[in-house]
Write a protein that binds this DNA or RNA. Structure first.
Length: 525
RNA sequence: CGGGGUGUAGCUCAGCUUGGUAGAGCGCUUGCUUCGGGAGCAAGAGGCCGCAGGUUCAAAUCCUGUCACCCCGACCA
């Protein structure tokens, strides 16, 4: 494939322009579009999740839902609308979310004159009390919990809901931060502080397990410092992943809420001795942001790369049928191959197959699937059929690197091949994180590692290849003032204080105070 | 809410300075030739130039107003 307009030495072409090196943020948008995962809606800040993206989310849901049920949780559904007064009950909670709430004030439209003087429909029937579109559901679920919990025998109460929420963000990006997004939120109530904390950490573990073993995205489990804590929580735990541009992505959170929401929602129970106590609650969630994490962890300059275990389809069969005399036979052969593949079990379901018999050119077709990130592509033409073999390409290898495999062998090894890709993706992502994680032992080293803010920004827009930083592991005695300064000067935040048990005494590189372990610092999404 | 920018075909944009009946590329439709890795040629469909005023014989173009969106900041899963 040569480009007549360019000299022979022209750079290799990529399916996505710009490349990650050239402009990471724009590359991300282009991958989402080229992979047909989602698109912008006419509604500001909202996205349309397209079938390929939604099917990926459905796989996330299916696997996580099983994990939640296996840990004793039940699904339920609570209203989209939250009375304003509910939100006002928990002081920190209001403060945290008030600035980004969509508020419903009317319940009817009627013909009238709009603000711009034109005739049209105008809101009528003002509500006595405005309703807030849930930015999260602690308060309204708390209201139910207070009714459901009377006795210690009602505890623990382990509930999850799959829902949409709305947070009126200033700046949005597909999957990573949209005004409306899909998520799950777990809400639990317990008799003791200890039990609630065990739950909080158990679900953190579930998230880490899912991220690493299903998304192939290595994560660091840790606790947030005060400034990054969920509004109203006593402790917030998180999983943090490193994206290919070395920025951190918070991929999931689990909160120990203490008795804060039990107080504000009046969740009380009588214990075995007949004395009344407030319950201890937790909440935890992951969202469609995970899809953004998958993209930024695995995708390359040719588009999406899906971890096989969560891919909407594992393999696409592309019949090569441009010779009319063999077209029908090839097609029949492919239908049979698809049927046989669909009997094979993999990662909790059967192999999902796309048989792409569309009447478009083969090269174009193959590239569409490359961009969508399907793990395996197999071409079957008359020559392959004669030899009873398929021509297979893996998405984690070069797009020209194809091998002829006997049909039986292909069927016998496909599970192993997919698992191989799955673990390969994880290993690659982990190696990238480790290569860009540094132990930092002084403030000077820290500043050199991240550079000053303005410098970093100009680098980002021009050549992403020289962006400084990554994960810095430094001793730190938590202090909000220090974090404010780091954010202002370096656009760096304390991502978390890891809970991996690797305690190590030292001194804070900012204050010189004693520190019992290293924290993770990074630029973040 | 501050600072910058942009509204023209489904998408990306040119045209505007210097007014003269609407353009390109991609995509789409049809036909022919191609076809084991992003095809070529030909024909075709598709736009009240964001909206409202004004200037003018004449406005995508100049003027005024307005709305929307985008980017940068403050805020965030």
């Amino acid at each position: 494939m040569s480009n007549p307009k360019q000299p022979a030495a022209s750079a290799p072409t990529t399916a996505i322009t710009p490349t990650r090196e050239e402009n990471y943020a724009e590359w991300y948008q282009q991958v989402v579009r080229a992979a047909d995962l989602a698109e912008n809606s006419d509604v500001r800040g909202c996205m349309v999740i397209k079938p390929w993206g939604y099917a990926t989310w459905e796989n996330v849901q299916r696997v996580l839902d099983r994990m939640f049920k296996d840990t004793g949780h039940k699904n339920a559904y609570f209203p989209l609308f939250i009375p304003l007064s509910y939100l006002e009950k928990e002081a920190e909670h209001v403060e945290g979310f008030a600035k980004e709430c969509a508020v419903v004030t009317h319940h009817r439209l009627q013909p009238g004159t709009k603000a711009d003087g034109k005739p049209g429909l105008v809101p009528a029937g003002e509500l006595q009390e405005p309703l807030v579109v849930r930015p999260t559901s602690e308060t309204i679920i708390g209201a139910s919990f207070s009714k459901w919990v009377q006795s210690y025998r009602d505890l623990p109460l382990l509930i999850n809901q799959w829902a949409n929420v709305v947070r009126w963000e200033m700046r949005t990006r597909l999957f990573l931060r949209t005004t409306e997004f899909l998520w799950q939120e777990g809400h639990t109530a317990h008799a003791t502080s200890e039990e609630a904390m065990v739950e909080t950490l158990k679900m953190l573990e579930v998230y880490a397990d899912f991220a690493e073993n299903w998304m192939a995205m290595p994560v660091i489990k840790g606790e947030k410092t005060e400034g990054e804590r969920f509004p109203g929580a006593v402790n917030t735990y998180c999983i943090e992943a490193m994206m290919q541009d070395r920025k951190a992505l918070q991929a999931g959170t689990s909160h120990f809420l203490g008795q804060n929401f039990a107080h504000s929602s009046d969740i009380k129970f009588s214990d075995a001795n007949g004395s009344v106590s407030f319950a201890w609650t937790t909440s935890w969630g992951v969202s469609t942001r995970l899809i953004g994490g998958m993209i930024m962890t695995h995708a390359d300059d040719d588009g999406m790369v899906l971890p096989p275990r969560l891919a909407p389809a594992h393999v696409v069969i592309i019949p090569v049928t441009h010779k009319p005399e063999t077209a029908q036979a090839v097609h029949d052969y492919c239908v049979k191959l698809a049927a046989d593949l669909r009997t094979i079990h993999y990662a909790g379901r059967t192999i999902d197959v796309e048989l792409d018999a569309r009447d478009i050119r083969g090269g174009d077709k193959a590239w569409q699937w490359i961009k969508k990130g399907i793990p395996l592509r197999v071409e079957v033409g008359p020559r392959d059929m004669e030899q009873d073999s398929v021509f297979m390409a893996r998405r984690d290898r070069g797009h020209k690197e194809k091998v002829s495999v006997k049909r039986d062998e292909f069927l016998a090894t496909i599970v192993q091949t997919l698992e191989d890709m799955q673990s390969g993706l994880f290993a690659r992502a982990k190696a990238h994180r480790e290569a860009n994680t540094q132990r930092i032992d002084s403030r000077a080293e820290f500043e050199a590692f991240f550079g000053v803010k303005n410098e970093a920004e100009s680098e980002e827009t021009s050549s992403g290849g020289s962006v400084k930083g990554g994960f810095a592991l430094a001793h730190y005695a938590p202090d909000p003032a220090v974090e404010d300064e780091l954010k202002a000067k370096f656009a760096v935040t304390c991502r978390c204080i890891p809970v991996d048990g690797n305690d190590e005494p030292g001194t804070c590189i900012f204050s010189g105070k004693p520190s019992s372990r290293r924290a993770v610092f990074a630029k973040s999404y």
